[in-house]
């Protein structure tokens, strides 16, 4: 097992390198860099701008810039953010946790809602409940999440029972830990719901399919024939086998949430990586972009790995060498 994990990690390393090089080249290929916007400020002289370029080695060839960045990474130096004038790690540090919270809550919400819905739909196959769930799933799958967030915000503003955007109340510091927990939870509700809706639709349909497949298996028939109560058949025997294949999805979902949330974070003013990344890409704050997307990719790799390990734990038939 350990060997397998190590091997996986080693094989992904060149992928990460390749990806970062492509991204680096892309950022460099685009015309103009961050300092161009400074050039339009009439009170900044060209000499000032030249000084900036020297400071960040922007005048060296592409590969030199890339490798100096890479060597710095090995020293856990992620470079400077031109925009914020501080190390990239310090810009990202505070926000990665927020994005994690949003992703985590949304993940729990997705699974918490989709799995029961999928089971319900499978049990009542082709009945009204199933039809309704399927229809709603299609609607959920088909609506852009930024749009849902916008509408949610609007409706919530009419009723006023949830805070609109942000992550903490103004008097957050005065709460005890329970108060703080619920405060964050209330704030995370809207972006998490908007982020989850499409995934709920997708996951529900997969769960339903798996459940139907399992319910058609021999051992379920056997169990029923033995006269086991239906509840027990479904929730003990069928459910376990239907959920297993879903575990692999968990990894993908986790990292997908990270990049899917950019527009959403802006609309809900959630202080996460997505909003940061969007402005960073647009202003070509190159080291910030590199670090953030590297982080996203690492998260994806970790997610996949985690899913595979979980799968082994849950399904005795699978072995990795």
């Amino acid at each position: 097992m350990l060997r397998y994990i190590l091997k996986r990690l080693i094989t992904t390393l060149p992928l990460l390198l390749g990806m970062s090089l492509i991204l680096f080249a892309l950022m460099k290929m685009t015309p103009g860099n961050y300092f161009d916007s400074l050039k339009l400020n009439p009170q900044i002289s060209p000499e000032t701008i030249d000084r900036y370029i020297k400071l960040y080695q922007l005048d060296k060839p592409l590969l030199v810039q890339y490798f100096s960045w890479l060597t710095n990474i090995l020293h856990l130096e992620f470079g400077y953010s031109f925009f914020y004038n501080i190390p990239v790690a310090n810009v990202i540090g505070g926000r990665i946790w927020n994005t994690f919270i949003l992703s985590f809550v949304s993940l729990i919400l997705t699974w918490g809602v989709a799995i029961p819905l999928g089971i319900c739909a499978a049990i009542y196959r082709n009945k009204f409940a199933d039809r309704l769930i399927q229809f709603l799933s299609y609607v959920a799958l088909s609506s852009p999440s930024f749009f849902i967030a916008m509408l949610l915000l609007y409706f919530v503003s009419q009723s006023g029972f949830l805070p609109l955007g942000g992550m903490h109340s103004a008097n957050y510091e005065e709460f005890n830990w329970i108060g703080r927990f619920f405060d964050v939870l209330r704030h995370v509700a809207i972006p998490a719901i908007a982020l989850s809706i499409a995934s709920i639709g997708a996951l529900q349909r997969i769960m339903r399919g798996n459940m139907l497949e399992v319910l058609g298996q021999q051992y379920i028939l056997t169990a029923r024939a033995k006269g086991l109560p239906e509840q027990r058949v479904i929730y003990v025997h069928a459910l376990r086998n239907a959920i297993n294949p879903l575990i692999t999805l968990l990894g993908y979902e986790f990292s997908g949430l990270l990049s899917g949330a950019a527009l959403l974070e802006i609309i809900c003013s959630w202080p996460g990586l997505g909003a940061l990344m969007l402005t960073a890409v647009q202003s070509k704050d190159i080291y910030l972009v590199m670090a953030t997307s590297l982080m996203g990719s690492v998260l994806l790799i970790m997610g996949n790995l985690l899913a595979d390990i979980l799968l082994v734990r849950l399904d005795p038939r699978i072995r990795y060498e």
Partner: peptide, 25 residues
């Protein structure tokens, strides 16, 4: 397949933005 995986490792939306920025004005 490694190349494929590399593309799948990109956070899609950011790649979209970066590529869009390459398009000549």
């Amino acid at each position: 397949m490694r190349v494929c995986e590399m593309f799948m490792l990109f956070p899609g939306f950011y790649l979209l933005l970066a590529l869009r920025a390459v398009v000549p004005a």
